[in-house]
Design a protein around this nucleic acid. Structure first.
Lengths: 220, 220
DNA sequence: CGTAAAATTTAGGTAAGGCTAAATATATTT
DNA sequence: AAATATATTTAGCCTTACCTAAATTTTACG
């Protein structure tokens, strides 16, 4: 029942790649996991033939999670997000420093440890990036946020989550004041390059698609 | 420079087995690591031929640490003991619950994490069992304690450390009040079975060698 | 529709770190 | 000192999870 670190990483990444509803491709997996596509094929074939199958796999058709695989993925994601929250809150990590550390810890903490930090943090709903934390019974809460890239002038919104692990990007966003909970207002939209001019506090910034697709907001 | 979990475990156990000054035998290692003696031989041969050799090894003569191996071992031991301290102090673990969790975490935390918990704890000198924590520059502090088994009637002492990981033993000791910092007084000594009658607070207990060799004290 | 490009899979190999069984050293006993 | 017992090592094998190179799909396009 307890998977290897490697298996847990595969399941977590399949979960993330299939959130859009489509199967995860071998190539995308390889890129995300930083290993060769041939290795992905091999591993996925193994995961598909485990006793309770963890993934659904048809040659050349990509891979999806079975219910058992999804539970295992959510367990790891819960560990990761609780750990990030806890590193920030109790050890003073900043939001750009936590990912790497949580990436290693997530595979080795016990269920007891998980319960203890969840309780110590007051069972938080979101991690420092605003990502939703799967519940203790491994359900992923509904997310009703919209990508910032979909907003248009005169709309007002609150930043809910930021999808990024790259420390440089995170530090950049923080320097712009673009962090969860912050209010923003759309000033302009440029249809050719999809740039949005956004007011944050009293500052105004022009943001490209690269940024606006990674910030999710709740429209006022 | 960064070793595998397995290598770190070998080095840690060699450190512990050679604290008495003698090389660690293949059999003792196998028993401590819970693997077969043949596997130990193989692994030790590998450790002896690493680029900076981690162990000194002569066939049939047991194994000792090189300076590089000792540093690596102390690093892991520092992680372990800081983690135990921190699990107890910040997450409410009891001293019999921490060992297993620290055993897994010690291999994956970063140097940054180590520094942060050390600072948060105020650079503690000892872990919850009273064991000395190697310093940040990887020196093991001198220990001047005496095994309780060496005391005789009318001597008074303070418990300094308890060498045990078994949760049942630890819970038993706690129920007897035998924890670090506690004052004790020797009432009687039985030369045939080496039992000591010890006064702890207002309670008196008769302790066998199995216990008295695992408790180290500072004589008043 | 056929071909080139891109994606995927197969086949065979490697490094870690375990295991068992058999061989060899060392230690103990008589 | 021989004989047995115990400890250790060697040899050969297994699993996990990766890799490269070659074969095969699938997709995309002229």
């Amino acid at each position: 029942m307890k998977q290897s670190t490697s298996t847990q990483d595969y399941l977590k990444h399949i979960y993330e790649l299939t959130e859009c509803g489509l199967p995860a491709s071998t190539n995308d997996m390889a890129r995300k996991l930083n290993i060769k596509p041939a290795s992905v094929t091999g591993m996925i074939q193994k995961l598909a033939t485990e006793k309770p199958a963890l993934v659904e796999y048809q040659k050349h058709q990509g891979v999806t999670l079975t219910p058992a695989g999804r539970r295992a993925a959510l367990e790891v994601i819960r560990h990761h997000r609780l750990l990030e929250t806890w590193l920030v809150q109790t050890l003073g990590y900043s939001w750009d420093e936590v990912h790497e550390e949580a990436e290693r810890l997530e595979h080795v903490i016990s269920e007891d440890f998980e319960r203890r930090i969840a309780a110590a943090l007051g069972n938080p709903a979101r991690d420092p990036h605003g990502e939703l934390i799967p519940t203790a019974d491994l359900k992923m809460p509904e997310d009703d946020s919209t990508p910032l890239s979909a907003l248009r002038p005169n709309q007002t919104a609150t930043i809910q989550r930021v999808i990024a692990q790259d420390p440089n990007l995170l530090r950049h966003l923080e320097s712009l004041g673009l962090t969860p909970g912050i209010q923003i207002e759309i000033m302009e939209y440029s249809p050719f390059d999809n740039n949005l001019t956004v007011k944050v506090g009293r500052k105004v910034n022009v943001l490209g698609l690269n940024i606006t697709t990674k910030i999710f907001v709740e429209i006022k």
